[in-house]
Design a protein around this nucleic acid. Sequence first.
DNA 1: CGAGGGTTTGAAGTGCATCAAATAGTGTGG
DNA 2: CCACACTATTTGATGCACTTCAAACCCTCG
Lengths: 244, 244
Amino acid sequence: MATMNIQATLHTIGLFDGADAGFFDSMAAKARVIEAEKGQILFIHEDKAESFYLITRGWIKLFRETLDGAQAVVDILTTGHLFGETSLFQDDLYPYSAEAAEASQIIALPLSVLKEEIEKNPKLALTMLSAMARYRKQQDQELEHRILQNAPQRIGCFLLRLADQNKSGPVTIHLPYDKTLVASRLGMQPETFSRALGKLKDATGITVKGATIEMDSLEQLSQYSCMACSSEFPCKDLKSAKSV
Amino acid sequence: MATMNIQATLHTIGLFDGADAGFFDSMAAKARVIEAEKGQILFIHEDKAESFYLITRGWIKLFRETLDGAQAVVDILTTGHLFGETSLFQDDLYPYSAEAAEASQIIALPLSVLKEEIEKNPKLALTMLSAMARYRKQQDQELEHRILQNAPQRIGCFLLRLADQNKSGPVTIHLPYDKTLVASRLGMQPETFSRALGKLKDATGITVKGATIEMDSLEQLSQYSCMACSSEFPCKDLKSAKSV
DNA sequence: CGAGGGTTTGAAGTGCATCAAATAGTGTGG
DNA sequence: CCACACTATTTGATGCACTTCAAACCCTCG
């Protein structure tokens, strides 16, 4: 798909529901498709923000770095997710850095056009508010998990959110990216991840084969992980917070 | 001030800039002043949200609790701060519990009136968006601090945000509430707080006497704490995020 | 003065990080 | 199809930071 239909892609973004045709026109006109190779940096924390991004293929890692070199992974997003759009209300500076975790395709879109549309279209402003609220809830949850859950519990919680939580009976889950990256996403070292996954296996009876994890039912996991969380088990809504 | 002027108080809230007179009227008409004693619970996580709150005196602790009893303090707010207002876009459920950390006075305001106003007044929606974005940045920062800063650094960072960061020369800081509460706010045990404050003293040369902390200049602290943070030293904007 | 909360100090335990090294997996060129 | 190179993952040993449990200390206030 060398020449993808950008307009059609833009119409799939929930955030843009209720925007008018002119908006999609100028958005598409100024859109820029980027083929990013693994490790490519898209922007750096506190860069001046002129674009926001839609992922159309691959995985993008959002992170921050301290003066002394430590790194905190904010999130790892894939196809259909937006990022960088909240800079609109944030001094126009990116609140994190973005790097392609693998070869990826993304579309850069102008923040200016989005800003205009939000200012003149109340519907969009409301949609954006909901999106921000959802994102906020997600962040709250993330913070809580880092504080209250130990390493094995965080892994269990991560797996639960990869699965269809309404399904009962046997479940198979595939890790979406390599274990080192999952570890960083969960705020732990690869070695800790490996050992913690072992503990989780012992504690819940799940089966681990490479990147594939199987269990008789999700309950094994939820009982173990959700114990140390303030939300009750089906917490699916957190995962589906796309395009925020 | 047994009979405070609620309307006047409402006009001081930045979030309401640009709302019309009718809004303030119905807001004030349905407002309810609450005298909360220390330890009083205002609402519980996932309660149905019908009000949001403005603090007019005292300190309010926002927190979540897990099934197994552990507690994560989200924030501790004082006079002039709003809380509970983002439930508007969140299934109408409170995202945390709220408790008076000491005897406090707060005003309960109807979410319904705010919702109506936001839907018909684009200006308010935009203000709310900015507020949410600011809050989000604050949360991002919080998460990062918990991950990348150790206990003494987190205390140093907390002190920096209590001070006027533009001031050079000697500085005196008073802890706003008791040390146990500060500890929980920073996600550590009281014992850890005590020992970490000792380490901070040794490392930076600050002077600690009870709840009073003195130093020759803020630089001593910023050098020590901001090393493990992705933001540069004057990070004042985070503290001033009132009324979000 | 004495009770009770807040604060500090000591001793021991836990969880995760770090450093080091072995092992498993994957893609490459021969 | 095999051997090599390189990376991902696991395992072991050790250290540090924070927690936990216990007890002392301090300060305020009745």
